[in-house]
Write a protein that binds this DNA or RNA. Sequence first.
DNA 1: TGGCGATATAACTATCATGTTATGTGGCTA
DNA 2: TAGCCACATAACATGATAGTTATATCGCCA
Lengths: 107, 107
Amino acid sequence: MTAAMSSLTDIESVLKALASERRLQILDWLKDPVAHFPPQEHGDPEAHGACNQFIVEKLGVSQPAGSRHLKVLTDAGLVIPTRRKGWVYYRRNEAALADLAALVASI
Amino acid sequence: MTAAMSSLTDIESVLKALASERRLQILDWLKDPVAHFPPQEHGDPEAHGACNQFIVEKLGVSQPAGSRHLKVLTDAGLVIPTRRKGWVYYRRNEAALADLAALVASI
DNA sequence: TGGCGATATAACTATCATGTTATGTGGCTA
DNA sequence: TAGCCACATAACATGATAGTTATATCGCCA
């Protein structure tokens, strides 16, 4: 069950999270982690997504900048982090993205 | 035919226009101008929407601030201005909003 | 044409977003 | 337990947003 997103302010915060070329790029890459990131020795990319480090490198920004983008997406509920063995993997939250699409359709 | 919105940067700019509580509010009001704004002596609210002045007043911000919000929505193609007799009326661009909803659904 | 009412633009200020470098934290692993 | 590696947080610089007041523009109408 995803968080309810009903009021204008809620929509606003999720849209703000989405209104960034970098973060849109991340979500696009995460559609197919295997295709867009190097093979991971630990963590199943299909199940848990790509690790923080790979995403940051592919973005081409500093590690803190990349981590913050991932935090924004996480706080908005658009991606789901999985912490494992010192790495953090991120995958899309398809349910939240579907909710958002429905909300935007109602704007 | 509405402008094509395909690249990530295009989506980004439209999402930025949308990611504002004030602008979301304006779009919501414009769903039913007759219900949300005073009667207009000039300009058909059904056909052309609500005039700048009414929208600004209802927003509760200064006239330039309100006008700028409307400019952002206009530049993003989300509303359509109609200039007539010294007033400017704004109505929703339903085609663009539908395109946007489809794009968000594809994120 | 003179003035007025509606909107646009200019100039400025405050806050937020995004980037950087430096440093802290916390779990492996040798 | 010592050190390393991944990630998080702190502190700061800078550019974009959104608000304000003041002023310019522009079409009606008397």
